[in-house]
Deep mutational scan, measured.
Amino acid sequence: DHDVVPEDKFQETLHLKEKEGCPQAFHALLSWLLTQDSTAILDFWRVLFKDYNLERYGRLQPILDSFPKDVDLSQPRKGRKPPAVPKALVPPPRLPTKRKASEEARAAAPAALTPRGTASPGSQLKAKPPKKPESSAEQQRLPLGNGIQTMSASVQRAVAMSSGDVPGARGAVEGILIQQVFESGGSKKCIQVGGEFYTPSKFEDSGSGKNKARSSSGPKPLVRAKGAQGAAPGGGEARLGQQGSVPAPLALPSDPQLHQKNEDECAVCRDGGELICCDGCPRAFHLACLSPPLREIPSGTWRCSSCLQATVQEVQPRAEEPRPQEPPVETPLPPGLRSAGEEVRGPPGEPLAGMDTTLVYKHLPAPPSAAPLPGLDSSALHPLLCVGPEGQQNLAPGARCGVCGDGTDVLRCTHCAAAFHWRCHFPAGTSRPGTGLRCRSCSGDVTPAPVEGVLAPSPARLAPGPAKDDTASHEPALHRDDLESLLSEHTFDGILQWAIQSMARPAAPFPS
């Protein structure tokens, strides 16, 4: 592969990997390779389809078979030569091979799209000592099968071997295949498990690692696999990028399955594409389908809103127990993405979901129960707010008499603000006073009005108090039968009158 990737590009890729991570280095090298001529790309395919690569990765054979028959990708048995050289000459001794072996032994695996480039050397060096003999053996194999790289107009793939297949390693990572398949204008990513390549439709969760975000852009890794992070704060999961590491605690105790298979379609829109997988259930989501939507993949363990709600429900009964003089119970939860139609709101002032922060849900004790107040519409209280300059209440639009249902020339009671006709409430011909108009209920007259088809109010509507207090003497005590009587009149003013009279009014101040 030294004929494909020059030394300066190799060093530039290593520097970019240390600065921005393996995914960015892979993407940059792939983009550079696509700008080369067809001879360089053909050399790339020839390096990929060597015999030892085909033996190690069985899924490469179907890719090789898909090439046109007129494309010669065979390799000479006596060494490598550029395709432009007409004579089959043995190339001179390859010093770059020693360079590659020494550099890969030092860096474990470079971040390139060629056999030198995919593992994360920093994480491997940190986690190597417990498994040094086995990992050293794996390093000797890295130059042979560490990076199976493929690129063409139909298929483009980048393979990364790992030393996680050490025997006896619980939940060992089998390997990473960062794979971009450009077929019919689409893009897919796969993962390699035990020599087999699994596409998103049959993606397997190998051991402790999972394909957290099938994305090839942005600074985030394709698999949430930063070796420096180790395990999740809650004892979460091992990262795919942690090559040759000792077994780590796999999943939280509440995880239903340690080796679950995540779905390959969004649980909201039932469509495929780039998904984020939940650590607590097999569901996966688009970032845009979450509520609120996320802009980037959160670091650490992530769970959907259903799993978060289940966790909150487990903690909430203990938080609601009476604990005198104790601060509110704080339950730190990872930043969760909410699927459509589901929402768990945190306290005000918290950062938005999706940031690399930890939301704190506070379970406050329930407030003391209070008697429910009568629910009145805002339009129902409008007549009470229509007060004239002299303190006389004006008529609201649409006000109707509670007896006849007519809204023409209605009066407004100064005591309960109900609309009424003087002739309907006082049919006996009582003279109307000039000021202080009161309806039949507030004036103490319980004589029913002779209106055909309208039920008369119940005599129990009024329960006047002592006459010594004029204001308190007109406080009506309405009961269920009074409400039914008012409802039978089918008037809004009657219902409003009952609601206003049912509310307690402050006692009249004593004259000074």
Rank of each mutant, 00 (worst) to 15 (best):
P247Q: 12
P247A: 10
A251Y: 14
D255W: 15
Q257P: 03
Q260R: 10
Q260L: 11
K261W: 00
E263K: 06
D264M: 06
V268M: 08
C269V: 06
E274A: 10
I276S: 14
C277P: 05
C281G: 08
P282T: 08
L287S: 08
A288E: 08
A288R: 08
C289V: 08
C289S: 14
C289K: 13
P292A: 12
P293L: 11
L294P: 06
E296D: 15
P298W: 13
W302Y: 07
R303Q: 03
S305M: 14
T311H: 14
E314H: 14
Q316L: 11
P317A: 12
R318T: 05
R323S: 09
E326D: 09
V329D: 14
E330C: 13
P334A: 07
P335G: 11
R338T: 07
E343I: 14
V344E: 15
E350F: 15
P351L: 12
D356T: 13
Y361C: 05
L364A: 09
P367I: 07
P368G: 12
A371I: 09
P374G: 11
G375D: 13
L376V: 08
S378D: 06
S379D: 06
S379R: 11
A380E: 08
P383M: 15
C386A: 06
P389W: 15
E390A: 13
N394K: 08
L395R: 09
G398L: 07
R400S: 06
C401E: 03
C404L: 03
G405W: 13
V410G: 12
W422Q: 11
W422S: 06
W422D: 08
R423I: 11
R423V: 00
F426V: 05
G429E: 04
T430Y: 04
R432C: 06
T435Q: 13
L437P: 08
R438S: 06
C439L: 01
C442E: 01
V454C: 06
A460G: 12
R461Q: 06
L462M: 02
A467C: 11
K468I: 06
S473Q: 09
H474R: 07
A477I: 00
L478A: 07
L483V: 08
L487R: 02
H490K: 02
T491G: 05
I495S: 01
L496E: 00
L496C: 05
Q497F: 01
W498N: 00
A499R: 03
A499F: 01
A499T: 13
A504T: 14
F510Q: 03
P511F: 05
